[in-house]
Design a protein around this nucleic acid. Structure first.
Length: 722
DNA sequence: CTGCAGGGATTCTCC
DNA sequence: ATCCCTGCAG
């Protein structure tokens, strides 16, 4: 095992300070690329190596499984094994594990199912129908979102009691019924995991005390993205010892829609008096132009503490910008650039393409396919989101937890076995009347079905019982195969599925150490599948170009980054245009996107875009204008002709810009780009670009009145302004 | 009960 | 463009 001294070696003074801090609250403000994960992992290792804590006394919480996995691996590498017992886990997984042990205190069974957003939506629809609520005034999606918001803010139906408006009372009623149905199904939705765990802590002090004793040190990554219920949970968990270390960057808070509250990080020192504060401001990732450009953009935000990131990497290319005629031209430009990049011997895995919304991937994919460039869309429809896979999972879930009505509804007639809508409705109603579950009603033959239908229901019940028996064994792949066979569909999927499941079995056989009680492989599998996140797909992607949303890109870094769709209405997105606070979030999102780039950052947009079946002309994103002129090249519309070189670019490789002057030599003064000048004839303007040197130097100037002109500096009588 | 056609609404980020 | 719902024919 490494010594404490070895662990702090190679850290910068601020990182080392945060790593050595032991008792009491600690706030680490870590700018993009400042070695945040490094600090966290070294801190965990240091706590153990210095004897301040046993491994099992440490809890490190992240937002994604991927981040958790990475942190765990890095801690292990640092300590060489002695990390068994350290809990590195997401908020949701941590709560699941606590609830599996304790939830009987809240009147659920420990075998509870976890509903994902689709399940929640289906349940919301069912509730709205049962309450006979008009779906026009209460769109199911909005209802689901409203309930989710309430949960993220820590509110159960009872907390809406004082609500007096008709709308408010109605929502309360719907929420109450929704919650009741969840309980009847012995299921928790995502929001419940945090909310119920917090309620458990609040109402059962003995349980809380046990976990407070167990985890004497709590570390939280991406603290700027915590929402009120996560905040409450953390406060409770650390109330006894206050050994809470949070790491975050207010400029990277991008989950407002999930009720993330940026004030959690802004007010940390107020909330935890005596908190020690460390700022990590040295960036180890990006070149200066990229860092400066990103900083200049986010500097336009009001809701921030403000910081100065710096790097010791001199020189570097300026940020590049390309405006295409339409979205296909945009894709063509990006792909053309990638082809040229590959010509230089660069691996395409070092590049990435980011967009604001998943829907933007389409034209890029088409263009990539055209040139046979391998790519992978990260996120979007995950394997486990595919309808057939969800069907198979619904079988497993219903088998493990027959109370899970949502899963049963999904499969009772899938594949079609003659139990149609009407029959299902009848059984549901009968179950409601008999105050029992859907499954129980099926078993008891409630609902006054026709003999033919009754027979088919009986066959379904028999099938489920048979499958349930096969799940009792050790294996998972085997009963799953049987399930797919007996249900008579999914043949095409079978092979694929089985491989994935066998891999899962292998991994979990080895790490079977748990104090989780009598839980089967199936339960573990279902749990992990449900809690998988978007970014978790980015493993073993090989030399394929990853395409992803900016949200998915958070926490990653690439040598070459392309961001497409920098247009008003896309990025920033429509929904945020009217709300200054929402615009700030979009700006942070832009900051996140830009700071992923290590060496070269390319921003693109299209003047015309076809979307949702119509044509839009979006103005260039305001964020582009916020980048100082001297840090960006290739302003709008100046596409150079392809220049034949020694190694010509691939034919037909899309449009290109001559960026030959975009390199900044280390230490070289920036050219007069961005300078305001006055011309005797054209009046005031701003230098957009300077090409060539000495007597041949020509400047492109955008005059306030006269527009763009190219002027030979030698002859022009320019007067510098400001 | 099943499958298909047509119409209306919607448009984002996700654990 | 796409999803989702409803209505209708077999």
């Amino acid at each position: 095992m490494a010594t404490p001294e070895e662990i702090t070696q190679g850290l910068n003074p601020e990182q080392a300070e945060a790593v050595r801090h032991v008792e009491g609250p600690l706030l680490v403000l870590a700018g993009a690329g400042s070695g945040k994960t490094r600090m966290l992992t070294h801190r965990v290792a240091h706590l153990i190596a210095s004897g301040a804590a046993w491994p099992h006394e440490i809890l490190a919480v992240t937002f994604t499984n991927k981040a958790a996995r990475e942190m765990r691996e890095r801690v292990e590498r640092l300590l060489g094994g002695g990390t068994r017992g350290v809990w590195v886990s997401t908020f949701h997984s941590t709560c699941v594990r606590i609830l599996r042990r304790e939830i009987s205190q809240l009147g659920y069974e420990s075998s509870f199912a976890i509903y994902d957003s689709d399940d929640s939506l289906a349940l919301a629809k069912r509730v709205l129908k049962a309450l006979d609520v008009d779906e026009k005034t209460w769109p199911p999606r909005s209802v689901r979102a409203a309930i989710d918001r309430l949960k993220n803010r820590g509110m159960l139906p009872a907390d809406l009691a004082q609500e007096s408006s008709l709308h408010g009372r109605r929502l309360r009623e719907i929420y109450q019924r929704y919650q009741m149905e969840l309980r009847r199904a012995n299921a928790l939705d995502f929001g419940d995991l945090l909310l119920l765990c917090t309620r458990l802590f609040e109402n059962h002090p003995g349980v809380l005390a046990e976990y407070q004793r167990r985890w004497r040190f709590v570390l939280v990554d991406e603290y700027q993205d915590t929402n009120p219920i996560q905040y409450r949970w953390l406060r409770l968990l650390t109330a006894a010892h206050r050994n809470l270390c949070v790491v975050g960057d207010e400029d990277q808070s991008i989950y407002r829609f999930r009720e993330a509250d940026i004030r959690n990080i802004l007010d940390f020192e107020k909330d935890f008096p005596g908190a020690h504060v460390v700022r990590l401001e040295q960036n180890y990732r990006s070149t200066q132009p990229i860092l400066s450009a990103a900083s200049a953009v986010v500097a336009n935000n009001v809701e921030r503490k403000g910081k100065r990131l710096f790097t010791q990497r001199g020189g570097g290319e300026r940020v590049r910008f390309y405006e295409a005629a339409d979205e296909r031209g945009e894709a063509a430009f990006v792909v053309g650039d990638l082809l040229r990049l590959r010509e230089t011997g660069e691996s395409l895995a070092n590049a990435a393409i980011f967009y604001r919304t998943h829907a933007q991937s389409r034209p890029l994919e088409e263009e990539l396919l055209k040139y046979n460039l391998p790519y992978v869309v990260v996120g979007g429809t995950r394997f486990y989101d595919r309808a057939e896979v969800k069907d198979a999972l619904a079988y497993l879930r219903a088998l493990r937890n027959p109370a899970d009505t949502e899963s049963l509804l999904r499969i009772v007639n899938t594949p079609a076995r003659g139990i149609g809508r009407t029959s299902v409705e009848r059984v549901l109603l009968a179950a409601e009347e008999a105050q029992t579950t859907f499954w129980d009603a099926l078993v008891r033959g409630l609902g006054a079905l026709s003999p033919a239908t009754q027979k088919r229901v009986g066959e379904f019940v028999a099938l489920m019982r048979e499958l349930a028996r096969s799940l009792e064994g050790e294996s998972l792949a085997q009963p799953l195969a049987q399930l797919l066979e007996r249900t008579g569909y999914l043949r095409a999927l079978e092979a694929e599925n089985t491989v994935a499941v066998e891999e899962f079995e292998r991994q979990n056989r080895e790490s079977e150490a748990g104090d989780d009680g009598p839980r089967t492989l199936v339960d573990l599998f279902l749990e992990q599948v449900t809690l998988l996140s978007e970014a978790d797909g980015l493993e073993n992607t090989g030399a394929r170009i990853p395409l992803m949303t900016v949200h998915v890109a958070k926490g990653l870094e690439f040598k070459h980054v392309f961001v497409v769709g920098l247009e008003e209405g896309i990025f920033p997105h429509f929904a945020s245009l009217e709300d200054p606070s929402a615009i700030e979030e979009e700006r942070r999102l832009c900051y996140v996107a830009m700071t992923r780039a290590m060496e070269r950052l390319t921003l693109c947009n299209a003047s015309l875009r076809r979307m949702h079946g119509s044509v839009r002309y979006n103005a260039p994103s305001r964020f582009l204008a916020e980048i100082p002129d001297e840090l960006i090249v290739g302003r709008r519309g100046r596409v150079a002709l392809p220049v034949p070189r020694e190694s010509p670019p691939p034919r037909d490789a899309g449009p290109r810009i001559d960026y030959s002057d975009s390199q900044l030599a280390p230490g070289e003064d920036l050219p007069g780009v961005g300078q305001r000048v006055e011309h005797p004839i054209f009046g005031a303007g701003r230098i957009m670009e300077v090409v060539g040197g000495g007597a041949a130097a020509k400047a492109t100037i955008r005059f306030d009145r006269a527009g763009m002109k190219v002027i030979k500096l030698k002859y022009a009588q320019l007067r510098l302004l400001d």
